[in-house]
């Protein structure tokens, strides 16, 4: 009798736990309602995520997702207990990329980031007005290659990356166990 009672207790608590987990998932998914400019859905594979970290040079305030510890897979069937992130879908903050907003949605399954989607992305390409055709001068082309001389500073479109990292960071903060 004692054994039976114990088994029932275990089963009931497991069901309760599953429901609880499911509720969490639903809460995450509830945020999925269209968020403004949703026409730019771009996915990245998890393996490329660390590359978007800025080089750890001048700005200490930049969050560095490279340093985020990898979630450890758990051996027990207990779902996600030992992993860093809870399963679910998490929406990052809208971040100012100056030319527009960046907002990411992170999906966590099995304790790992399974996909990152862009809910908002600066889309200066969406203008539909056709441009006049220019007299077509023949311009030179070349394959790009690295040049390694010392430089005083660097020109590049850093904005979106910083905004991406910031939004990503806030999404992952919500996914933390």
């Amino acid at each position: 009798m004692k054994k039976l009672l114990l088994s029932v207790l275990v089963i009931v608590s497991f069901i309760l736990y599953s429901l609880f987990q499911r509720k969490d998932d639903l809460v995450g998914s509830a945020n999925l309602a269209p968020q403004g400019n949703t026409n730019n859905t771009i996915s990245i594979s998890p393996s490329t995520t660390p590359q978007t970290s800025p080089s750890p040079t001048t700005i200490s305030t930049t969050p560095d997702i490279k340093n985020t510890p990898k979630p450890t897979p758990t051996a027990t069937p207990t779902p996600t207990k030992a992993s860093l992130y809870k399963n679910g879908t998490y929406i990052g903050d809208v971040t100012d990329a100056y030319y527009g907003n960046v907002q990411v949605q992170v999906q966590v399954s099995g304790g790992n980031i399974s996909s990152v989607n862009f809910l908002q992305y600066p889309s200066d390409r969406s203008r539909s007005i056709s441009i006049n055709s220019y007299a077509m001068p023949i311009l030179e082309q070349e394959a790009i290659k690295a040049q390694s001389a010392n430089v005083d500073t660097v020109s590049g479109a850093t904005d979106t990356s910083l905004a991406f990292i910031s939004s990503m960071q806030s999404a992952l903060a919500k996914a933390q166990n």
Partner: peptide, 13 residues
């Protein structure tokens, strides 16, 4: 002297 960042690799000009 200014570098133009490699769009495929942030750490390279």
């Amino acid at each position: 002297t200014l570098g133009i960042r490699n769009p495929f690799n942030r750490n390279e000009n």
